[in-house]
Each structure stands twice: as structure tokens, then as C-alpha cells.
């Protein structure tokens, strides 16, 4: 039997804990300013949104340590009301990154949870990475940013 490290999304298994959800929340207090010098940019699109309500909250990470509970390199947000919303991050150094996003439907700037600790708002990860009893590893969501313009698409679920 394979025991999974993070059991966050396990109401199935009746052990909701933190995990997926807290770590998926960008620090709402962070400004959307570049903290890393560089001239690369990243445009994140959100195909197949189920609803065009609320705001897409985007957090960009550059390491497993940051991904697992540290600070994002940048956060930004974009209204989900546009037909094809795109979040833009600029001033990035070339390198390896991963993105988490959630759709803030109730305007509290947090990924809302049900009483047993499971997300009730849509969320997603770059690289097509999927939650599995907790968030995916940084490596599963990682992609490379090269100098100039870069693009990623994230499907929320």
C-alpha cells in the first residue's frame, strides 16, 4: 500500500488536514511587484473556466521550498469576468517556476474551504499537475521561463 504524504483532500478517507489548500493560497498581503530582477515575462491563460465570476488569484514559485510553504516570487490577480482572462507576470529572471491559481468567488482573497477542510473554489496548477490527496510537488508543476515572453495555460477544477 502506498501511503500518500499529504492527506488534505481525503474527506473520502475522513482525514481532512491542511495541506493542499493553505499552501495554495497566495499571501494576500503581498503586492504584485517584481521581486526578482529579470526581463522575462509570463502570461497565464485559464482555458475552460466553468464560471466567469470572481477573481483568479495567481502565485508564482521558484523552488520546492517556497512551494511547500514559503513565499511566492510574485502574486497577481485578474478578473475572471473577461471572456479569456490572462494573468501577466513581468520582470522575471529566466529559470524554473511553478504556478498555483484559485478562483476567488466570494471575494475573501482566500481559497475557501468546506468545514472538513476541502476547497470549495476552483483551483489549478501549472504543468497540468493534479492534486492527489494534497497538492502536487513543485517538480510536477514546474516549467521553464526563458528570456522574453512565456506562456502557460492552467485548467482549473
Amino acid at each position: 500500500m502506498r501511503l500518500l504524504p499529504l492527506l488534505a483532500c481525503a474527506a473520502l478517507l475522513t482525514v481532512p488536514a491542511a495541506g493542499l489548500c493553505q499552501t495554495a493560497v497566495p499571501d494576500a498581503g503581498l503586492a504584485t511587484s517584481a521581486t526578482s530582477a529579470g526581463d522575462a515575462s509570463l502570461a497565464v491563460a485559464f482555458p475552460d473556466l466553468k464560471s466567469h465570476e470572481g477573481v483568479l488569484m495567481v502565485a508564482l514559485f521558484d523552488s520546492q521550498a517556497a512551494w511547500a510553504g514559503g513565499k511566492p516570487v510574485q502574486v497577481t490577480f485578474v478578473p475572471a469576468t473577461a471572456p479569456e482572462p490572462v494573468a501577466k507576470l513581468q520582470g522575471l529572471a529566466a529559470g524554473t517556476y511553478a504556478v498555483r491559481v484559485f478562483q476567488d468567488l466570494d471575494g475573501d482573497q482566500r481559497l475557501s474551504m468546506n468545514p472538513f477542510g476541502l476547497p470549495v473554489e476552483p483551483f489549478g496548477f501549472s504543468g497540468g499537475a493534479k492534486a492527489n490527496m494534497g497538492p502536487p510537488a513543485f517538480a510536477a508543476a514546474a516549467f521553464t521561463v526563458t528570456p522574453g515572453d512565456n506562456a502557460q495555460a492552467i485548467t482549473l477544477r
Binding site: R2, L4, N132
Partner: peptide, 20 residues
Amino acid sequence: TPGFGTAPGPGAAVGGPDDA
């Protein structure tokens, strides 16, 4: 997909109980 008595197999993606 894991469950009551089933262990997860390669590629399982359970983001919440309704995935199982």
C-alpha cells in the same frame, strides 16, 4: 482510484472525495 478497500494506482488524481 483509491477507495474503501482499494489502494491508489499509478496516475491516481484525487483532488477531493468526489474524484473517488
